[in-house]
């Protein structure tokens, strides 16, 4: 069950927002379980030090196998399309060849936690999805304002330093809802 972030301790460096980290695993045994029931809360944090403390205990995405996702979202935003903060927005989706997930996930979440995107309240959260073929990194934002979406893309390209042929697509959540593939 979800627990809110503790207050930053003495001498710690507060973050602009508190965040919550979730985990989900899809397998044969829980294929019919509803998406939100499959989400496992890991921890939430309010400072840089609390983040590193939690992060040090967690298996790197690249070392995971099977159909696994990590979700890092601002406290109060559920990592689901239906959440009020998400439903009018969308996400940048980046396909990663095997071997890039851990580095790119770390670069992405550090940029998010450090407010490097400079788009005000727009960022909702980040997801790394480990799959059999390519892995998928995504960054969710609130609105479908083209200027904001482009600015987020530019920062993603700066902070992730992706291989030149990396596929980046923007997908609105309403499109995702219609997508039956």
């Amino acid at each position: 069950t979800f627990r809110p972030a503790p207050k930053p301790g003495e001498g710690e460096h507060p973050l602009q927002y508190n965040y919550a980290l979730w985990f989900s695993r899809r397998s044969q045994s829980n294929k019919t379980v509803r998406y939100d029931q499959n989400l496992k809360f890991i921890a939430s944090f309010a400072s840089v030090e609390q983040f590193w403390n939690i992060y040090s205990y967690i298996v790197r995405p690249g070392d995971m196998t099977g159909h696994v996702d990590y979700h890092l979202f601002k406290e109060g935003i559920r990592p689901m399309w239906e959440d009020d903060a998400n439903k009018h927005g969308g996400k940048w989706v980046i396909r990663l060849k095997k071997g890039l997930a851990s580095r790119c996930w770390e670069n992405l979440i550090l940029a998010m936690l450090g407010e490097q995107f400079m788009v005000g309240e727009e960022i909702c959260g980040a997801v790394i999805s480990i799959r059999f073929q390519d892995d998928i990194l995504s960054l969710w934002n609130r609105s479908n304002d083209q200027a904001i979406i482009s600015r987020i893309r530019d920062t993603l390209q700066r902070v992730l330093n992706l291989p030149p042929n990396t596929i980046m697509d923007y997908k609105s959540h309403t499109d995702s809802l219609k997508d039956t593939s």
Binding site: G9, E49, G114
Partner: peptide
């Protein structure tokens, strides 16, 4: 208002602080 901003190198620096362990 002001925003609390950290670049990557600052966050990596703070990773080694005793408070982060």
């Amino acid at each position: 208002g002001t925003r609390i901003v950290y670049d990557r190198s600052r966050l990596m620096q703070l990773r080694n602080s005793p408070l982060a362990r």
